[in-house]
Amino acid sequence: MARQALVKINPKEYKKDDIVRVDSVIMHPMDTGLMKDKESGKYIAAHYITNVEVYYGDEKITWMELSGSVSANPFISFYVKATKTAPLKIVWKDNKGEVTEKVIDIKVD
């Protein structure tokens, strides 16, 4: 199941070699594994994003390791140097093997 994700570049207008901020958010419960279910007294199984990878063109430029202590619907922002016209792809992977991808285009003159 692909999850809903949103990626934006800030500012909207930029030139070649500008350092732009990329804001990303994905809908994910990020269950820590510490919450108890009230009825059964059992723990709700951990279900969170473990890896985020960012590709600019063919190159992997940033990667992250997350744990359950990141808030639900994780919001992550980072910077990218807009050196070329190429797709920017963000890949989220969680501990149950779900993979979500989102691609946006970086265009420079």
Partner: peptide, 24 residues
């Protein structure tokens, strides 16, 4: 419970060592 929250690895293509997120 798990003290390690997040690790972010950079390459020169980032332009800036910066990360912003929300934690518990």
């Amino acid at each position: 419970h798990n003290a390690k929250t997040m690790s972010v690895y950079f390459t020169p293509a980032n332009g800036k060592a910066y990360i912003s997120t929300r934690i518990r």
